[in-house]
Amino acid sequence: MKMTASEAAEILRSHNAWRRDSDDEPHVQTNPRRLGVAIDMAAAALEREAKRVRAVATEAARNED
């Protein structure tokens, strides 16, 4: 299933609003397959960002010496 990062973010926000039973507007439970893809995309993005931050921190530490 193809999904953009923006779609994944919207699915996660919508699901969280449904889970919290937000009174602002009615929400429908997210399709479990779409939710799974959105979670996988978010987790992969977080892992990429953590790797990037570690690389920057390592490079900065090397440059201090």
Rank of each mutant, 00 (worst) to 15 (best):
M1N: 05
M1E: 06
M1L: 11
K2L: 08
K2G: 10
M3Y: 07
M3R: 04
M3L: 12
T4L: 02
T4E: 03
T4H: 04
T4Y: 03
A5N: 03
A5C: 08
E7M: 01
E7R: 00
E7L: 01
E7W: 00
E7V: 00
E7P: 00
A8D: 00
A8Y: 00
A9T: 12
A9H: 03
A9N: 11
E10I: 06
E10A: 10
E10W: 11
E10N: 08
E10P: 02
E10L: 13
I11C: 00
I11M: 01
I11Y: 00
L12E: 00
L12G: 05
L12W: 00
L12H: 05
S14T: 10
H15Y: 15
N16W: 12
N16A: 14
N16Y: 14
N16C: 08
W18L: 01
R19K: 15
R19N: 14
R20F: 06
R20L: 14
R20I: 06
R20M: 13
D21P: 06
S22Y: 09
S22D: 15
S22E: 08
S22R: 07
S22F: 03
D23V: 13
D23P: 04
D24Y: 12
D24V: 10
E25G: 01
E25N: 05
E25V: 06
E25S: 14
P26I: 08
P26S: 12
P26G: 08
H27A: 07
H27M: 08
H27L: 06
V28P: 06
Q29V: 11
Q29R: 10
T30V: 15
T30A: 15
N31K: 09
N31H: 07
N31Q: 09
P32S: 03
R33S: 10
R33K: 14
R33A: 09
R34P: 01
R34D: 04
R34M: 06
R34N: 06
R34L: 02
R34K: 12
L35K: 00
L35M: 08
G36Y: 00
G36H: 01
V37H: 14
V37M: 10
V37T: 15
A38C: 12
A38T: 04
I39S: 01
I39V: 07
D40Q: 14
D40C: 13
D40N: 09
M41L: 09
M41I: 10
M41Y: 02
A43N: 11
A43C: 06
A43D: 07
A44L: 03
A44S: 09
A44T: 02
A44D: 05
A45Q: 15
R48G: 05
R48D: 13
R48N: 14
E49C: 13
E49G: 10
A50I: 09
A50Y: 12
A50S: 11
K51H: 15
R52G: 11
V53G: 04
V53C: 07
V56Y: 07
A57S: 09
T58E: 10
T58S: 12
T58V: 07
E59I: 03
A60V: 06
A60R: 12
A61H: 04
A61W: 04
A61S: 02
A61E: 05
N63P: 02
N63A: 12
N63Y: 13
E64A: 10
E64T: 12
E64D: 13
D65C: 06
D65M: 09
D65R: 15
D65V: 07
